[in-house]
Write a protein that binds this DNA or RNA. Structure first.
Length: 550
RNA sequence: UGGGGUGUGGCCAAGUGGUUAAGGCAGCGGUUUUUGGUAUCGCCAUUCGAAGGUUCGAAUCCUUCCACCCCAGCCA
């Protein structure tokens, strides 16, 4: 894990600093508030804020709110929360809509200089005139409309004199340009929609292309970092910067977007998951959204670490889930408190335990991190262990409890198998053991060694709902067109388990380790009587792996 | 010959003509361990999309070819 970003964008910025192009740098993170941020945005956030920090610069949070129909204050609020949660502070909070008046003036300027015109082709006609990827387009019959006429029409568009789609402002560049984006791109369209910030003040809205670069220039952005699909827009971006009296010379640099296995990172498709009810909301712990990951149990540090480990290039990439999981585990390893929980309880009774005696144990929250303190744990001769920790007919090298075997109940005693009690169906209802008083943890002088040490919960434990989350999509590279069939039917498995009292009492939002199981975050759905825990990630399971290999 | 990009091990990714091609993740094997976790040690590309060429020397330069991605919203 390197601390200095070492990639082509850092190199480019360094070069701009060295050459004297810039004395300091300013970047921006420019989401459109039309949905929740996801892990792909996290990459962009970490890149933009991280690179600015690295070079002593600043980063703005700018909402690219140029298309009111899809945007909402709810998204603005969520985005602010998510960026802050990730641990970044923006120098300024900006909105493209703050520049609408300036943008309008620049559009007029372009018209006056015969670099833009009001067209009245409808969308379909425009497409026809645009030509194809291999064939040049044709000029609109309105292309040579006198500037004054365009100016008047443009004013009328703004004033609300026309219907949506009736007129459109276009740049006058080159309808035969090999780059389709340069074939007289749309600058302003009529939209009678309520804007979350400007309300009904405007009847026309600038397009992304007309707003983005100029907004960058207004904010004195030095490096405008965006994803690869905007590469083709760069000539247009530069055309505006070159043809308008903008107060800055931002440079656009593109990098490849993040693809995560078993995930979708398209706002449109994530929206569908939410609206079609396949998940419980934008913050469903299975969602690759920042809010979903937060609720799942990911930490800001783990996500930042992930983003630094995946690198920044222009190459298409699909990152394996295991890397994200590794980042989480490694962040939590030395910080999360550990406690006992069982997902599938089975009663274990110590037959030689003194009737009524209760032994109060003091167990470390983290065996290697004493600063985390201890929690009380009561042992009264009846405990619950996980069904997975007993096998009547064990496979070879099974270290857990089995007929004729012994196992240590962590922080307590070694117990020796005695017998089983089964119900009418033949299922194991209870395990009977004896304990070895000489083997008490911390004061064991018996010299006995056992291969297995397992967690357990006391007789007075708390029932808890455990939400075991797994990948949302079965396929590593889901398409997202056929949600029903692509979704992993086992992306959520509910368990009614038991947790020791101290674990049940942790604060909502705390992430703990259920020893030998995984890291879990106490969910907001918890009630006073029943805690709810979300499984963020399992522990690595070498035994399961060995079993699978056979 | 539309335009724009990208090709280094299973997944990422350094490398910018000169030791045997960094590192991480995954995998495999060992040690430690009162979490089959953690930690730790070792192994894991004669080869850089392919073929030619330049050079004493090439993943790095040249040529040709191949593969994959993006673009025809009044979305961003």
């Amino acid at each position: 894990m390197s601390d200095k970003p070492q990639h082509f964008i850092a190199d480019a910025i360094q070069a701009d600093l060295d050459s004297g192009n810039h004395d300091s740098i300013v970047t921006r993170f420019p989401p459109e508030p039309n949905g929740y941020l996801h892990v792909g945005h996290a990459k962009s956030i970490c890149l933009n804020f991280g690179i600015a920090q690295e070079f002593g610069g600043q980063t703005n949070l700018r909402f690219d709110d140029t298309n009111p129909e899809k945007e909402d204050q709810e998204y603005i609020d969520a985005i602010r929360r998510d960026v802050a949660w990730l641990g970044f502070e923006w120098a300024k909070e900006c909105y493209a809509s703050d520049y609408f008046e300036q943008l309008y003036a620049w559009a007029q300027d372009l018209i006056q200089r015969d670099l833009a015109y009001v067209d009245e082709l409808d969308a379909e006609q425009m497409r026809a005139y645009r030509g194809t990827l291999k064939q040049p387009g044709q000029n609109s019959p309105f292309r040579d409309r006198p500037a004054q006429e365009s100016l008047d029409l443009f004013a009328g568009m703004r004033a609300g004199d026309f219907a949506e789609g009736q007129y459109i402002l276009r740049a006058k560049i080159d309808m035969a340009h090999p780059n389709i984006n340069m074939r007289d791109p749309a600058l302003y369209r009529i939209r009678r929609a309520h804007h979350p910030r400007t309300g009904d003040a405007w009847n026309i809205y600038p397009t992304y292309d007309f707003a983005h670069g100029q907004s960058d220039a207004i904010e004195q952005i030095t490096h405008s970092l965006c994803t690869l699909e905007f590469e083709d827009h760069r000539p247009l971006y530069e055309w505006f910067i070159d043809n308008l009296p903008v107060p800055g010379q931002p440079r656009q640099i593109e990098f490849s977007r993040l693809q995560l296995e078993h995930c979708l990172t398209s706002k449109r498709k994530l929206l569908a998951l939410v609206t079609e009810g396949h998940v419980q909301g934008w913050d469903d712990p299975r969602m690759p959204t920042i809010s979903g990951m937060r609720r799942r149990g990911f930490t800001p540090a783990s996500i930042r670490d992930f983003c630094s480990r995946i690198g920044v290039t222009k190459k298409a990439n699909t990152i394996e889930m295991s890397l994200l999981e590794t980042c989480l585990r490694s962040d939590l390893e030395n910080t999360a408190r550990r406690g006992f929980a069982v997902q599938d309880p089975i009663k274990l009774t110590i037959t030689n335990w003194p009737q009524g005696e209760v032994l109060a144990l003091d167990a470390a929250w983290h065996q290697r991190v004493p600063e985390l303190g201890t929690r009380p744990l009561e042992f009264d001769g009846t405990v619950y262990i996980d069904r997975a920790d007993f096998e009547e007919v064990p496979p070879p090298k099974y270290f857990r409890l089995k007929p004729g075997g012994s196992v240590r109940l962590k922080y307590a005693f070694i117990v020796d198998f005695e017998s089983l009690i089964k119900d009418e169906q033949g299922n194991i209802a209870e395990i009977l053991c004896t304990y070895d008083p000489a083997t008490r943890s911390g004061q064991d002088e018996s010299g006995r060694k056992v291969k297995g040490t397992i967690q357990w919960v006391p007789s007075q434990s708390v029932p808890a709902e455990m939400r075991l989350y797994d990948r949302l999509f079965s396929d590593p590279n889901p398409v997202g067109d056929d949600l029903i069939n692509e979704l992993n039917p086992e992306s959520l498995v509910l368990k009614q388990g038991l947790v020791e009292p101290a674990l049940a009492a942790v604060e909502v939002g705390e992430i703990v380790q259920f020893e030998r199981i995984g890291f879990f975050r106490k969910d907001e759905d918890s009630s006073a009587s029943e805690p709810v825990f979300n499984r963020a990630v399992t522990l690595k399971d070498g035994w399961a792996k060995a079993q699978k290999k056979g």
